[in-house]
Design a protein around this nucleic acid. Structure first.
Lengths: 342, 342
DNA sequence: TTGTAGGCGTTATCAG
DNA sequence: CTGATAACGCCTACAA
């Protein structure tokens, strides 16, 4: 435990702490000679500024917090890569916490991060979060924060999202162009904005192609799992044996659907076409390879951090915060599960 | 920006900062009356101790760092769940960093965390890490640290591992019991200890069952990917068309193998049996469902934190550190890919 | 039971 | 160019 401090350097060199500090921070008003001496000794003694003291003094931790529903998720971890890469450029450390899709956990994580006094917060809401009381405190304390992917429309602040309606519209249109007319939708839970928007996109696509909307062809996930995909697939086969296409809220659900279709000997894409959402890693290793909607995950992370950085600097300079919403483009990836037309 | 401080509470109540501090920390020498008054006002003003100041004063951050090769990994994220759950009990925050399987990144992350002055470090080494120079500084600075899963045998300190040799031995024996005699092994890179141990387990299993070891049936991954699984599968089919069993270093590789076998119309498990390692999530949703070796990931996280905690408390109390190695049990999960005998 | 004083390691202001 | 000096907010002997 021999942590080097400014004081030690100062004593060894017989100069004041102030001068050492200045030399180290490239202030102009230090003679080149003393500066060099300080620099040399500091290097030799492996001087590292004590971040605790720096934090206390500057009231900044150079740390941001990120809260996501779950870690084991190709999409989110890719977003995180983007955040971390960008944050690093500006010397920020990223603390990642997961909410496990639960509001109470989300709340807890927020408090934890605020207690640690992170400089800013990046949040993707849990499915359970339909009200935003627990986010109010973040706003009230005026902590810079940005929502991404799964957001609350009600809440102010900056946001980075994709155009879920448009993306879903395109996915369903993709099926329609393959001559599917009887199309089911396995949708996400009722709360999350993106589940709602994707559902709307599904409906619009049907409308615009003169296909009657049939609420019986819509199935609502609660937890968006592989198992739910399986169950709904079985249900669909029973209730709509003539179904031609299935648009799933997420790749994981689509994989569940494919598993059932495989088991039942139903040919994909010859008999039924399936499209997922998010381009999860698994979708390209499964048989048949799954068509899906690609979301720019890495870019989302980068954009989210940039918006956050804007807020953090604005705050430091006592300037008013400007809130922005960035919408990132998506695109359809056609693989085996939707190839060919009927 | 109205952070409440002890001073503010003290002023409002017309008492000293010291008393406020004591009251808040349940010291005995404060009159019940003042204590209550302090507690009430503190609650009302939403007092939160400034962690920067506390850190500086106590020289502790109540934060630990975790470095893992990659985030998107069912095994690691489950380990992390264990770490986080356990850490939370003792009021520790967990900062997760990934090394991306690169030594230089690993090094960088370590420095970052040391600069942040985490109280302890949990590390699972990257595949690239064959020497441990970058870990020396951790030891030299006497930062409590524990290695888990992918460890360096050379390095001191506490460790949490599984018995890779035994686990691999059991996996291969499982194949042998299904009457496989011609068994290939797709192994991991040369550096990581666990790849070495699994390979040794493979060899021992053959030996003990009077099956001659054939180095030509061993294939070495460099990056342990789905793609490598595919390529080696093709190679195996060509070089050893009579192969009966394949033991893969990891489920991801096994999934690549299965993809090729599916494409080629080779029946698993009827013609070839495949077993993976780690019980990755995907292994149970793929067709055919993959047999594998289950590692106690969550428990590993818990154990790792506990060992770390021991070190951290020992250190705080100026006691000598005792290093331990904990070995966790594994077990075979039989699914479709190895069912039935020849 | 309460309060005073010193210090954790930095940074910033202001004289010299 | 250099260096006292005073914070930042909290903790903890030691006095009163």
């Amino acid at each position: 435990m021999k942590e080097t401090t400014l004081k030690q350097i100062a004593e060894q060199l017989g100069i004041s702490i102030t001068t050492v500090s200045k030399a180290l921070k490239n202030y102009t008003d230090v003679s080149p000679k003393t500066r060099q001496a300080v620099l040399d000794l500091a290097a030799q003694m492996h001087y590292q500024p004590n971040s605790f003291a720096v934090n206390l003094r500057t009231k900044e931790s150079k740390t941001i917090g990120v809260i996501i529903p779950e870690l084991v998720h190709h999409f989110f971890s890719s977003v995180i890569d983007g955040i971390v890469a960008e944050a690093e450029k500006y010397g920020y450390l990223v603390i990642i916490q997961q909410s496990n899709e639960s509001v109470s956990w989300e709340q807890k994580q927020i408090e934890l991060l605020l207690n640690k006094r992170v400089d800013g917060l990046l949040i993707s809401l849990s499915n359970e979060s339909n009200d935003d009381a627990h986010l109010r405190q973040v706003i009230d304390k005026e902590i810079p924060f940005v929502q991404f992917d799964k957001i609350s429309k009600l809440l102010g602040g900056s946001k980075v999202i994709i155009d879920d309606q448009k993306a879903a519209y395109e996915a369903v249109t993709h099926l329609i162009e393959k001559n599917c007319t009887r199309i089911a939708h396995i949708r996400g839970p009722i709360n999350p904005q993106n589940a709602i928007d994707r559902f709307i996109g599904y409906k619009k696509a049907l409308d615009n192609h003169q296909i009657p909307y049939d609420p019986k062809k819509v199935y609502t996930c609660e937890r968006v799992t592989f198992e739910e995909g399986r169950q709904f697939a079985l249900q669909i086969l029973e209730e709509h044996p003539d179904i031609q296409g299935i648009f799933c809220i997420t790749d994981l659900v689509a994989v569940g659907v494919l598993a059932v279709l495989n088991e039942q000997g139903i040919k994909v894409p010859d008999q039924i076409k399936v499209i997922g959402f998010s381009n999860w890693f698994m979708s390209q290793v499964i048989t048949p390879r799954l068509s899906t909607v690609e979301q720019p995950s890495y870019e989302m992370g980068v954009a989210a951090f940039q918006l956050l950085l804007e807020q953090m600097t604005a705050r430091r300079e006592q300037q008013p915060l400007v809130y922005k919403t960035v919408k990132l483009p998506t695109n359809i990836i056609e693989r085996d599960s939707t190839s060919g037309t009927f």
